[in-house]
Design a protein around this nucleic acid. Structure first.
Lengths: 228, 228
DNA sequence: AGAACTTTTTAAAAAATAATTAAAAAAGTT
DNA sequence: AACTTTTTTAATTATTTTTTAAAAAGTTCT
């Protein structure tokens, strides 16, 4: 399990990090809102612990921003019991919260509880369980894609790639970007891995993989999706 | 479907409310026993989730009072395993219960199960109930299944699995989810247990267990049921 | 055209996950 | 208490996915 802690109090972050690492979690840290949003694109993150008070962008805004592209569970840390309603309500979409100062044991329990109740479909990236763009449908429950009503089973990585591409149609991603987002910030492997996955994705979804109509190559830059 | 939640922990109510609304339920809330009884006169309420510990009037008394004028299904929330028999017995007339802390998924499953038992001829309170989806019939009375009119005896866990899968056809459950829901949220055992149960279930219900047509595997994610 | 660089394709190795089997443990019955 | 059934654990085998590596094909630039 990989979690991201977002708080500007470095000492607190250190403490939480230590505690969760003891339990076998992988822990990433961000110290302001901007950084947090950037890191939240990392699909391998399973949960985010987010402080309400942050420099640059406040926690609630960060939460909202992340919710625009991700359904990753978020546990908020707040100073006082104020605005709880908003935090948990649909408005911002956090999954749980804790008031500071809190007990690390309790935080652990909350995190576990939130992770536990996530079903695979809910852990998916978007709110809807099916997203449809042109003839392309993404089913986040069964994690497969259908093109012109032909359903195609994808592997985990293939679906993650497809998801990112389709939901950001037209945006070009470098191989490095893709490694960061889909394989995780700290992935040590080779960048050519992406090529192979893209190729196999094309093999599955393109009418003619040699002349892709969905997943295009931007030469010297990366890949992008375009509606056929 | 309209349900009423009765609990004085407002945050808990909020969480449950949010979760059930996500599933398309209409959710009302009451924060003490008096209020609950008053609201229970609303004949459009399909089910009540009722905490045992309440201010003013305790949950059991509330349950009894409501039973004087209504047959609405009631699911009790209790703190520890105490006097379950009484709660469920004729004395108080609750339909099911859950011990705190509980998993929201489990609560959802229980509520669905209770509603299911009630729907056909709710007023009659007859225990016989059979759910039929395609060629698959679930007999909740004898807790066995029949497929294309071939009756198959299942063990307890097998039936629980089958129940969850069939009633949530198409939804993928991870092994962890299944442990939470069927074995209980604090079950300490190994996740591979699920594999073995699924295998034996397949052995019983699948025409060819090696190529399942009902209980499918979503690789890297979990299992799901699909009508053959 | 040819060198330098980038992408595609292919094949095989490595890693991760699932199915199967058998035996032990637990629960329930007679 | 002995027996039967069900559930769990553990180990093995099989399968699928992912990664690595290298050759082939395609661009760009001088």
């Amino acid at each position: 399990m990989k979690i991201l802690i977002v708080d500007d109090e470095k000492l607190l972050v250190k403490g939480i990090k230590y505690n969760f690492e003891q339990e076998g979690y992988t822990v990433l840290a961000a110290y302001d809102g901007e950084e947090a949003i950037k890191m939240a694109y990392d699909k391998t993150i399973d949960l985010i612990i987010l402080d309400l008070m942050l420099p640059k962008i406040d926690g609630l805004s960060v939460c909202q921003k992340i919710r625009e592209f991700s359904n990753v569970p978020i546990v908020m840390l707040t100073a006082k019991n104020e605005d709880m309603d908003k935090i948990l309500g649909l408005e911002y979409g956090a999954d749980d919260y804790l008031t500071k100062p809190f007990n690390v044991l309790e935080l652990k329990a909350r995190v576990k509880a939130v992770l536990r109740r996530m079903t695979p479909a809910e852990a998916g990236r978007t709110k809807e369980s099916i997203v449809s763009i042109g003839g392309v449908k993404l089913d986040y429950n069964l994690r497969r894609v259908s093109i012109d009503d032909k359903t195609i089973d994808l592997t985990a990585k293939e679906f993650d790639l497809m998801d990112l591409f389709v939901c950001n149609a037209g945006k070009v991603y470098s191989r490095e970007n893709l490694l960061d987002i889909i394989w995780g910030y700290d992935y040590p492997g080779d960048v050519r891995t992406v090529d192979v996955h893209v190729r196999r994705l094309r093999e599955k979804i393109e009418p003619n993989p040699a002349e892709p109509v969905y997943i295009h190559t931007k030469w010297g830059v990366g890949y992008y999706f375009k509606e056929a």
